[in-house]
Design a protein around this nucleic acid. Structure first.
Lengths: 188, 188
DNA sequence: ATGATATGTATACCGCTGTTTACTTAAGGG
DNA sequence: CCCTTAAGTAAACAGCGGTATACATATCAT
């Protein structure tokens, strides 16, 4: 057997610790929501001390804001080809492991607490809805972006929060087509 | 001025008190969700003592179950005419005061707490999705019911939880038509 | 009227939560 | 090598949560 390689990394690394907290927070908030996730849950998963949340983020609330804003990013969706937009979106949302780096569960589960809801609403508007409205164009862009979010959030709700067997793996081609058509018809 | 009519009702009325708690619970759970609604909030709104929740419902959890199951009812939607189903649903969901006796906000906000989520999932399936799947018919009825809920929940999410100006009153005829068409195309 | 019971009240308990404080220890430049 | 500073720790605080307990009082049959 081999001797353990001496790790050149210092045992104390502020940036690494901060990132570990942020990652654990994203996982926990996406699984149990804002209120039902305790600071001690997050720090235990990250393997650090609970007091470090206050040190690195100021408060649980600020940590939530940092965690969500890192996840909310319109670029991925906005890069899909317009001609096959519906198909691409449905393929993404129906991917086998969609919970990875997806801000939607976090948003849905954070909607209960008023503080987290206000933060979520602001970030969602600034980082997603407004860019997407511009992408759709001047003609009812905001309404189209809202309808897009409505579809995507509803689908995520019944795939990850209240998982329905009807929307799992063996989804029929007809229903996939209905979903893709709904997304696509926002463009055409 | 007139003398106050002597109220023939007794000051202590168990059924009336129980109903007051149930109603206050529906309002509070629909506004702040399961975790962020305290038993003391509910009983204060109902004007009764906090201990009465345990007496009449056993626990906060049972109260939530009673509150939601009274609201979850597929009959209204299932009575709409099939030919103009999409229009009727959109008119209902876009009504000026939709928060009255609408189970959707309560469901959306309760999705954070694992206990409440489990209760909600069970009631939603038994009281809504299964009847609706039968209503749609044997051909992909469950998938259609899921798509219906997906649309309705998404729309409610961005009308009541994260209220978007784009979905408020002055919604364009085109977008209304898109919504109605999405609902209708689940039937045709 | 009177006692039994249903109804409602006051209060305390215990566990959990976010945050602060004072302290300990590792890191790295002089 | 040492000593200043950054990084991390341990413990406690203050408040709130759901619930159980012991108590008070209105209601109704007898």
């Amino acid at each position: 057997m081999s001797m353990a390689e001496p790790d050149p990394r210092p045992q104390r690394d502020a940036t690494r610790t901060r990132a570990a907290i942020l990652h654990a927070a994203q996982q926990a908030f996406s699984a149990k929501g804002y209120t039902d996730t305790g600071v001690r849950d997050i720090t235990a998963a990250a393997g650090v001390n609970p007091a470090l949340v206050s040190r690195y983020f100021g408060s649980k609330e600020k940590l939530y804001e940092a965690a969500l804003s890192q996840l909310l990013n319109a670029e991925l969706v906005l890069g899909f080809p317009r001609a096959r937009f519906g198909e691409a979106v449905v393929r993404m949302l129906l991917a086998p492991a969609p919970q990875q780096r997806n801000p939607l569960p976090m948003m849905l589960l954070a909607s209960a607490d008023p503080t987290a809801r206000a933060i979520t609403e602001r970030l969602l508007t600034e980082l997603f809805l407004e860019p997407m409205a511009r992408w759709y164009g001047p003609e009812r862009g905001a309404e189209k972006a809202a309808c897009f979010s409505l579809l995507a959030s509803g689908l995520t709700l019944y795939r990850q929060i209240y998982p329905l067997a009807a929307l799992e793996g063996g989804l029929s081609d007809e229903t996939r087509g209905w979903l893709a058509g709904a997304f696509q018809s926002l463009i055409d």
